[in-house]
Computed example of a mutant assay.
Amino acid sequence: MRNKAIQVKGLQKSYKQLHVLKGVDFDVEAGSIFALLGSNGAGKTTLVKILTTLLKPDDGTAIVNGFDVVEETDKVRKSISLTGQFAAVDEILTGRENLTMIAKLRHLNNPRQVADDLLNRFGLIDAANRSVSTYSGGMRRRLDIAMSLVGNPQIIFLDEPTTGLDPEARLEVWKVVQELTEQGTTVFLTTQYLEEAEQLADRIAILHEGKIIANGTLADLKNFSLLQRWSM
């Protein structure tokens, strides 16, 4: 059996009178793709912020790579990476310069080689010396994910990574995500799109009004009535 990369139990979070997370429980297996499916306002981003130590929960526990997100924030941060809804790349720099800069910030040996390895892996080597401002949406997102993998984090969090992308660019990102687990990376993906969760995830959890209302493989959830309504 795989080890648990993430363990969440009884997680709660409120903003003043708004109760966003209402006792969330789930586990994520190491080396898998886990999709958190939910509409806008369901609490997906709040949950990701807690798991990545950007926000403290009001109650409950979250263990990431064996470390408590509240008590061992530095250890959690060293073993994860987060890619938000919009590509965090410098458009003035080239693709190679973006990656080299991150490698230097993380004090890695031979940052240029690190950059070139990732450019090759993500199919961007031919555009390595072009300004990112000339990249398509799909290329920018691929570069953004590549930057998140500098230093080989054990877990990568992708918060709605295909938001705003056209269908072709979405397919590009899907291919990249599927390839991540081949390298042993655990992927935690949030999405509003059922099709995306179906295509990518080993397990899917549905977050609705702050609670997990379903959690399992796609086969497990096929007969779940709320999943059927989601796809309508």
Rank of each mutant, 00 (worst) to 15 (best):
N3G: 14
Q7N: 14
K13N: 08
L21V: 09
G23W: 12
F26H: 12
E29R: 06
A30P: 00
S32L: 02
I33S: 01
N40A: 12
N40H: 08
A42F: 09
G43R: 06
G43V: 01
T46N: 09
T52M: 11
T53A: 02
L55R: 08
P57C: 14
V64R: 10
N65H: 07
G66I: 04
D68E: 04
V70R: 04
D74F: 05
R77F: 06
A88L: 11
G95M: 04
R96H: 01
T100Q: 12
M101N: 05
M101H: 07
L105F: 13
R106L: 15
R106D: 04
P111R: 13
Q113K: 14
D116A: 00
L118W: 03
A128I: 00
R130N: 14
R130H: 15
S131H: 12
S136K: 13
D144L: 02
L149M: 15
I156M: 07
I156R: 08
L158V: 13
E172D: 09
V173D: 00
W174E: 01
W174R: 10
W174T: 03
V176I: 00
V176E: 00
E179S: 14
E182I: 03
G184Q: 01
T186A: 11
F188N: 00
L194G: 11
E196N: 13
R203F: 02
I204N: 09
I204V: 14
I206K: 08
E209W: 05
G210Q: 05
I212H: 08
A214C: 09
T217N: 08
L218I: 07
N223D: 13
Q228D: 14
M232S: 11
